[in-house]
């Protein structure tokens, strides 16, 4: 999302304590960091990793929902879902662009996704098994993503913050379309209501896990907070999400699959039951039910598209040559 003029200029930075202190002072003063500015190598690497993961998540995230475009049960839903999945492709594109300002190319990032070096959000390694999942993903998964993303609009890195402003603006319809789908099902036939409850049962815990490990176990958290790449801790965001979502489920007459969920007057929020961290780490480490299929689908699209990209480049070369010859 930014002019790429002097990519990698930060390589000149000498990371003396004085340099690091001066950088931190800029961050603390809420100054935005722009691509050509000197920055610590760690800051750059953290951003490349995080923005890359974020972009990959958008792209891989097209697959589970894309699984239902061809089966959407009404034309209105079909158009909305197609537009939403398309938006996710756009968000991936904006984010890759933001990462590219840090001296890494989209091709490099794509290759890292395809060979398994780069991660993406684990939530997309669960399967979509019914139409209700399209509603639930919009409601819970996009809802959780929005909680994460809104603070990123104020991230210290300018191009990332700008990309996120655009993403958040576009995404405002995603959660609403999801909730509307679930609401229609919850108020529908017995089968439809059962479909909605089954979907909530399967997606609740993975959605809660989207906020990452508890603060005490989060390895990147402190430094990212200090650099203002991250503004709230995992547990703070998770709590906000649960507090916002429980009344929404109640309104639908659906039951959140957590018997320990209860209002805590003292903290003015909900307490929840224990999260299955074994499952979390298993899925993070690439053993989610759809992990292999997701990467395979992305690899197939990339490999099958190679001849198209090559043709476009070859033609561009011919055009250039013809133009030069004509001049």
């Amino acid at each position: 999302m930014y002019s790429q003029g002097l990519i990698g200029a930060d390589g000149r930075s000498e990371e003396t304590q004085a340099f690091l202190d001066a950088f931190q002072k800029r961050i603390d003063a809420e100054e935005k960091i722009e691509p050509n500015d000197p920055m610590p190598e760690g800051y750059r690497r953290t951003l490349v990793r995080q923005i890359g993961q974020h972009a990959h998540s958008e792209i891989v995230g097209m697959l589970p929902e894309g699984n239902w475009i061809t089966r959407a049960p009404s034309l209105r839903r079909k158009a909305a879902l197609l537009a939403k999945v398309q938006d996710e492709g756009g968000h991936g594109l904006y984010l890759y662009s933001a990462a590219e300002t840090l001296g890494v190319s989209r091709k490099q990032m794509t290759e890292e996704l395809l060979d398994g070096r780069a991660k993406y959000s684990s939530i997309f390694n669960y399967p979509t098994l019914s139409w209700a999942d399209i509603g639930t993903i919009g409601w819970l998964v996009d809802g959780a993503a929005i909680m994460n993303q809104i603070p990123l609009c104020r991230c210290s890195y300018g191009p990332y913050a700008r990309a996120m402003i655009r993403v958040c603006k576009e995404e405002s319809f995603h959660q609403r379309q999801g909730y509307e789908i679930v609401m229609t099902l919850a108020q529908g036939t017995t089968d439809q209501k059962a479909m909605a409850q089954d979907s909530l049962n399967r997606w609740w815990w993975p959605s809660i896990m989207m906020f990452g490990p508890h603060d005490a176990d989060s390895q990147h958290s402190d430094q990212s907070m200090a650099w203002k790449i991250k503004r709230f801790t995992n547990d703070e965001l998770r709590q906000k999400f649960i507090d916002a979502t429980v009344p929404q489920a109640e309104y639908l007459g659906l039951t959140i699959p957590d018997p320990d969920l209860k209002w805590n007057e003292e903290k003015n929020g909900y307490d929840h039951g224990p999260i299955d961290w074994d499952e979390f780490w298993r899925v993070v480490k690439g053993h989610g039910p759809m992990a292999k299929d997701r990467v395979k689908a992305r690899k197939k699209a990339w490999d099958d598209g190679a001849w198209v990209r090559d043709a476009a480049l070859a033609h561009a070369e011919k055009r250039r040559a013809r133009k030069m010859a004509a001049e």
Binding site: M1, Y2, S3, Q4, L93, Y94, S97, E100, S105, R106, K107, A163, R166, W302, A306, R309, D310, A312, L313, H315, A316
Partner: peptide
């Protein structure tokens, strides 16, 4: 896939009377 498809910067004019403004980038041959 051998080469990378080049990167372009995109500028959009929201409406007549305003200047084109940088909105992002993309790849195209």
């Amino acid at each position: 896939m051998s080469a990378e498809v080049p990167l372009w910067e995109v500028f959009i004019r929201p409406r007549n009377g305003l200047a084109h403004k940088h909105v992002g980038s993309l790849h195209a041959a």
